[in-house]
Design a protein around this nucleic acid. Structure first.
Lengths: 186, 186
DNA sequence: AACAAAGACTAATATTATTAGTCTTGTGTA
DNA sequence: TACACAAGACTAATAATATTAGTCTTTGTT
């Protein structure tokens, strides 16, 4: 029965996000995705222009969830240093809770990269916070390093490249403390 | 003309490394790889057991190159802090010079992950150095953070997620300094 | 009432990695 | 020296993949 729309772009993206969340992007084929929506694969192309387009939308969804999470756990009444610590803590928690979808965001695929401007909008509030720690002149550099530290750490964790025992929670906390501390004492 | 071996495993891996280096793993098919060696794709399976097996060997090669590079630029007569700075500098230089092969190492694919024990052997000398900065008790945590910072930074660079201008060389240097500095002053 | 377009479908294609089976050519052993 | 055997190439075939083309039905609009 054509026409009475059985799915829409939003549906498709949500479902794709769920399936990637559960099984990883490698396990997602347009066939499986379509089947789970009770349609056939070619019908997806009425709503998304390509698989890369679909993945880009999925990635945007992931980033929105991530930054919503982060924003909701910033302690507004605490000093910037503590706020930034909370940001980096939540960042890691999110990535570990959603390894498949998180990882997809940073997987090399130019066509699936979310729009630059949207990313900037999401990250600006965090740059504000870190500016309170390092001063405004260094805020961009400090932000970049902080994101790098957090992203790098969780990627190594997710890819199981930190397998030599020890307490990863504690190690992360120590590394974050060292980094933020290092920006304060000249 | 079968038998007189036209290729061997070493050949294949070197060629695959070259092709990935130049065009990225997405552009590498077994067909293209075989053609460039003047054989047909199925013949590859006499030398590698699967594509994942091939990629694992390529990744090992990349890591060996990386750590050889690093080892060769450590200033032996300088204090540990300076040595570690050099390590992280070379790490980034390598990754930026070989984005495709570097990235493949950290791409999610359990089957293509190099052997854990080999990785440990490669990294131990660096842990020695950082132990000179932080003391032996914290050396593992500090090493993890340092790798995370370096890896995270270059991945964001490679994926062009640090596009807001500024001097990335300087930002990286500042972030590294802050991090190492932060481990020294309690 | 007629028509255009939305949205599903089937059928087909090109590219994948991979397997099965065949043929040839060296090599080690009787 | 003869001969089995295995290494290493090949062709042919398969299953899965993303994607395109073309068809048909339903709905909303003129």
């Amino acid at each position: 029965m054509p026409y009475p729309s059985q799915v829409n772009r939003e549906n498709i993206i949500q479902q794709a996000w769920q399936m990637i969340e559960e099984e990883g992007v490698q396990q997602l084929s347009l066939n499986k995705l379509a089947a789970s929506l009770n349609i056939k694969a070619p019908s997806l192309y009425r709503h998304v222009s390509s698989k890369a387009d679909l993945l880009q939308a999925v990635n945007l969804l992931t980033l929105q969830k991530l930054f919503t999470d982060i924003a909701s756990t910033i302690p507004a009444d605490k000093p910037p240093l503590e706020q930034m610590t909370a940001v980096l803590h939540t960042y890691r928690q999110f990535a570990l809770a959603h390894p498949h979808t998180y990882e997809l965001v940073y997987q090399y695929n130019p066509a699936a990269r979310p729009d630059e401007n949207i990313l900037v909008q999401l990250i600006l509030p965090i740059q504000e916070i870190i500016a309170g720690v390092t001063g405004p002149d260094n805020s961009l550099a400090a932000l970049r390093g902080a994101l790098a530290l957090a992203h790098g750490f969780v990627m190594l964790e997710i890819n199981q490249q930190l397998q030599r025992g020890g307490d990863l929670d504690a190690d992360y906390q120590q590394a974050v403390n060292a980094y933020l501390n290092g920006w304060q004492s000249p």
